[in-house]
Computed example of a mutant assay.
Amino acid sequence: MKALKILLFCFLIVSCEKKENLHPYTFYYWKTKLALNPEEKKVLDKATIPYLYTRFFDVNKVDGKFQPVAVITKDKSFQTNKQIVPTVFITNQTFLNISGDEIKFLAESINKLIQKKITEYHFKVNNEIQIDCDWTAGTQDDYFKFLKELQEISGKNITCTLRLHQVKDKKQTGIPPVEKVYLMCYSTSSPLETSDKNSILDVTILKNYLAKLEDYPIKHIEVALPIYSWGIVTNHLGKHKLINALSQKDLENPNFKKFSENEIIIQKDGFYFGSFLNKGFKIKIEEISDSQLKEVIAFLDKKIPKFNIIYYQLDSKFVINQNFNL
């Protein structure tokens, strides 16, 4: 009887530890038209972080002028109790050859458009604005000036994304002047290059980039993990294009001939997945498994004392049957 009690006690301890080790999570929302179907609402409601990281618009520089791109619109179905975290993607070229006055103008314009959308759509927001930019050694100074300027103008807590190469090459790319960064644990290679690796996430490549993550000067690091998928179409000339949200089940077609678990060659000209594809074209599916995500999380647990997870992205195509309590 005593042994049974000890065994039960040990089981309860292990169970509690397992629950405590689960990372709180939520999602990125990266569509131009904000809308939530029942499946997405259900999944979002279960998320254990009270925020939804929502892309408001992109910014690019065209002919020397700053341009907002794909500014959000909102459907009445987009209803959530989560606080919205405005997120803005800015191209790296936006910060090439930019003057001090332009940096201030850019910060003012971005803050103004964010506030306009918050007011227009009656968003419940927290005190954060997240900036997503793949800055480089050549743009780091001006990008960092922009982050400081936006902080001062908005009065908000400015955070930013952190790509893998910006961790590995931190001496060249610099450390952003923010208190919190979001480590993007995906896009380990280009999908438009011929390779046998998974371009969304190759865990070996990721571990190489993040080998010294524990030495990164900013200690408040959240983690963005991929749950998306796509198909890479290769034509007769070896050129590639992407078809979003394809999975291995989409390869089940009598006009396709499989030559590996996740690759087919088209046997008949026709319209497939909204595109006209010729006989002889190849399609390679790239998607992410639970085992890959678990391996990344286990690796990061040794590097970062504590972190939240933001899954990219909230879309019923990607969240159905997904296990988020990893």
Rank of each mutant, 00 (worst) to 15 (best):
T194C: 00
K207P: 05
V178M: 08
V181H: 04
Y182I: 04
E222D: 15
E179D: 15
A224T: 15
T159I: 01
S187Y: 04
T188F: 06
Y209C: 06
Q166Y: 05
V203Y: 01
N157L: 11
T194E: 12
P176S: 12
P177W: 03
P217C: 11
Q172M: 09
A211F: 11
I175H: 07
V233I: 15
E214Q: 14
I232C: 10
G155I: 04
Y186M: 06
D169G: 03
T204R: 10
W230S: 07
H165A: 01
G155L: 02
S187H: 11
L201Q: 09
N198L: 06
S195N: 09
L162G: 04
I205L: 13
L225Q: 05
P191G: 02
Q172S: 12
I232K: 11
H165D: 03
C185N: 13
V223P: 14
I153Q: 10
L210I: 11
E214I: 04
P176K: 08
T161H: 03
M184N: 04
E222R: 15
S187V: 06
N157H: 15
I158D: 10
Q166L: 07
D169E: 14
L201T: 10
W230L: 09
Y182H: 14
R163I: 01
E152G: 06
S189F: 00
L213P: 11
Q172R: 12
Y228D: 07
T194H: 06
L164Q: 14
K170G: 00
E179P: 08
I175V: 15
I221G: 10
N157K: 15
Y186T: 10
G155N: 05
I218G: 07
L162W: 04
Y186E: 04
P177G: 10
T188V: 06
I200F: 00
S190W: 00
T159S: 14
N157F: 08
G155K: 05
S199W: 00
Y182P: 10
N157S: 13
P226W: 08
Q166C: 04
K219G: 14
W230V: 02
Q172D: 12
I153W: 12
Y182C: 00
E179M: 11
I158Q: 08
E222H: 15
T159R: 07
E152H: 14
S199C: 05
K207Q: 14
I221S: 13
N208Q: 13
L206I: 09
I227A: 05
Y182K: 06
V178E: 11
V203I: 12
S189D: 13
K197M: 06
